[in-house]
């Protein structure tokens, strides 16, 4: 493993949504700050910085993780996937995003990227999730606008579509 001095900036490189990216950061820099302020990928949001609200959720090697509890250095040479990857190149929404719009599952949209990323991971592993399963996973996210009802409806519909994360 590469050793880096705590007070020195070092180059960090990984794959972000399939593209090779790199930037300089101190070892203590959070992955969320690196994504947002070094790489300019502002789709990932910061809501609490203590791992509870879930807004910052991204995939690292396909697994949902709290970006605010991850150091940028921990993403070195790994594949990071964020909300910016979900829509098609032409902007077309995927099944999960479409269901969110249809069921009014977002209002301010600030918590939404984290929820989308959690379920991108979860549905990939559990294509036939029940509503109870979905509610359990959604329990890892805070939303203050919607009261969750629309989010549950959207997730259930996306789950039933067979290919929710595509």
């Amino acid at each position: 493993m590469r050793r880096v001095n705590p007070d020195e900036r070092a180059k960090i490189a990984f794959w972000l949504n399939g593209r090779r990216v790199s930037g300089e950061a101190e070892p203590r820099m959070l992955l969320t700050d690196f994504l947002r302020h070094v790489l300019g990928a502002t789709g990932t949001h910061v809501g609490c910085e203590h791992g509870i609200c879930g807004s910052c959720t991204v995939l690292i090697d396909g697994v949902a993780q709290r970006g605010c509890l991850t150091l940028a250095a921990q993403a070195e040479e790994r594949a990071v996937t964020t909300v910016e990857s979900l829509a098609g190149a032409d902007g077309a929404l995927n099944a999960l995003q479409t269901a969110f719009q249809k069921h009014h599952a977002l209002q301010c949209g600030f918590c939404t990227p984290g929820i989308l990323m959690s379920f991108t991971d979860y549905f990939a592993r559990n294509p036939n999730a029940s509503e109870a399963d979905i509610r359990a996973v959604l329990g890892g996210h805070l939303c203050r606008c919607t009261g969750y009802a629309g989010i549950v409806e959207a997730l259930v519909e996306a789950s039933r579509s067979g290919n929710p994360a595509a």
Binding site: T42, T44, T82, E84, H104, L106
Partner: peptide
């Protein structure tokens, strides 16, 4: 349906810190 949604669902919102 809300016209705001596609932007927000795609991580293209323009919040203050963005």
């Amino acid at each position: 349906l809300r016209k705001e949604d596609p932007v927000l669902l795609s991580g293209r919102g323009r919040y203050a810190d963005d």
